[in-house]
């Protein structure tokens, strides 16, 4: 009896899984249509808003240009090997071109070197000889704009603090460099520069420590929005008036600006990265010339244009 049940049960499980998969696979295949070029996009993950914007941009480009776009990514940015496997599996299905945002730049080099189709990197660059292009934010520029924005809100000689990302994170390091340059040019006094690993909670406690020593800090530049929001919490808890500038332009940050809390953010343009990625991939497939470096640009978001940005973010994250 039980034996029978066991077998029925296991068969049922296998079949259910397969039915679900067949459903998913089928729908993807159907949307592909015939005769279109196919571009595979492998991101760091699909499980955070930022990457959803990239995905939305890539898919929008696909729709507009008539390209079959497949966007995949592991469940976390730390799943480095899973990303490598996904790249392998996508290459195995011979797409027209591959767009990749590497979680760990060095790790994708061996597998991407073997690719026979155009490879475009977005968001994060890697030392890949055969890459067609890198499309991403100039992080130095983003930081510089952030520093400029913060200076414009303060008086010359005011004390400011900088919250950087994890040690060795080149993107946030560049931003910090840019911000520093702008702040120094404007004559601000940088009293602290501490890492908070791009983490909101950590940024909050880092800021608390900074305020212990310097409770007359007037402004803070954070190398991403999560840290900026963490800093804001620490500041609010002390009831101080400190201008906080973030970087990235996430939905949460924009909402905070609208609420009059965050002073501003330097938005990266993830949507554009995705869009440009697919657009230039198509160009490469068609043998057109593609620039080796494409700046996806930054956008300064303050109370003036936050509403607009919010609406845009909401439409693309649907």
């Amino acid at each position: 009896m039980i034996k029978k049940k066991t077998k029925l049960f296991s068969t049922a499980v296998v079949l259910t899984c397969m039915a679900l998969l067949a459903g998913c696979g089928g729908s993807k295949g159907a949307s592909g249509g015939g005769g279109e070029e196919r571009v595979a996009v492998v991101l760091k993950t699909l499980s955070s808003p930022y990457w959803k914007y990239v995905e939305a941009g890539a898919k929008a480009a696909g729709k507009e240009l008539g390209v079959d776009v497949t966007v995949v990514g592991p469940n976390a940015e730390s799943e480095v090997m899973q990303q490598i496997n996904m790249i392998e599996d996508q290459l195995n299905q011979s797409p027209g071109a591959l767009v990749v945002s590497p979680s760990q730049p060095d790790t994708v080099v061996p597998v991407l070197e073997t690719a026979t189709v155009p490879v475009l990197l977005i968001d994060t660059d890697a030392k890949l000889k055969n890459k067609t292009s890198f499309i991403g934010t100039e992080n130095y520029e983003a930081g510089y704009e952030g520093g400029k924005l913060l200076s414009s809100l303060l008086q010359k000689g005011d004390k400011v603090a900088i919250i950087s990302g994890a040690l060795g994170n080149t993107a946030t390091d560049e931003r910090v460099k840019g911000a520093k340059a702008a702040l120094e040019e404007a004559g601000m006094v940088i009293v602290a520069e501490q890492p908070a690993d791009s983490d909101k909670t950590k940024a909050m406690s880092v800021m608390e420590n900074i305020l212990q020593k310097n409770n007359d800090v007037k402004g803070v530049f954070a190398a991403n929005d999560d840290m900026a929001l963490g800093v804001l919490r620490a500041v609010e808890a002390k009831g101080l008036d400190v201008k906080v500038i973030g970087t990235d332009g996430t939905l949460e940050a924009v909402e905070s600006i609208l609420d009059g809390k965050l002073a501003g953010t330097i938005a990266q343009n993830p949507y554009k990265m995705g869009y440009e990625g697919v657009k230039n991939a198509l160009a490469a497939i068609n043998g057109e010339k593609v620039d080796k470096r494409i700046n996806s640009g930054v956008e300064v978001i303050t109370k003036d244009n936050a509403q607009e940005k919010l609406e845009f973010l909401k439409t693309i994250s649907k």
Partner: peptide
């Protein structure tokens, strides 16, 4: 691998 080939999301 199979789920990747079928483009099933990682989650």
């Amino acid at each position: 691998n199979g789920l990747n080939l079928l483009n099933v999301p990682a989650d």
